[in-house]
Amino acid sequence: MKSLGKYINSYRKSGDRKWFTLIYQEIMPRIYRFYYFKTMDRELSEDLVSEVFIRVYRNLRKTNLNERSFMVWTYRIANNLLIDNFRKNTGNTEPLESVLDHIKITDEEFFKKNSSLFRKEFSFKNTELLAALSRLTGLQKDVLLLRFVEDMDYNTIAGIFNKSNGTIRGIIFRAMEILRKEMGR
């Protein structure tokens, strides 16, 4: 991750494709996971990832971003695209905040039905974990995944969701408690 800032800077200065490739290789799996745990759909996640990077490619050189603000910017694009997609498919016109919190394409039943599919991708324990995650709100799930899967700090997560550092900490600890209880059942 330390080199991401260097890649961004070099790409902004030179426009050389090799730097964009390095940025892509570093960030693309993270954005993919962000979509995948929301949609549990490989194809849709890949489509959305492509759309995010089309926008990043077209705008990155016009920005003045450092490593952290780049992450915030990219995840905001990802979030907005997901909301657009969600609204388009469901006809939902709720405000952005509540849409973010209610995007729950999957539920516990979904995991039970598709457990064999997920077993191929994760261990059995992970399938349990995914089912427990689906009990959280959309925001709680996003924040937890960014913190513990993507290893992001509180400030970056706070930037992505436009919330204070303290709010994000509160969400994380509450969500962890729910998750622990769900997994212990």
């Binding site: 799996p29 890949e46 991708e121 974990l129 937890l144 995944l145 513990f148 899967v149 998750l179 622990r180």
Partner: peptide, 14 residues
């Protein structure tokens, strides 16, 4: 719990 969440990092695109 955090460690089990960390295992989800194995999810990668095709």
């Amino acid at each position: 719990t955090a460690e089990s969440l960390n295992t989800l990092r194995a999810v990668r695109p095709g």
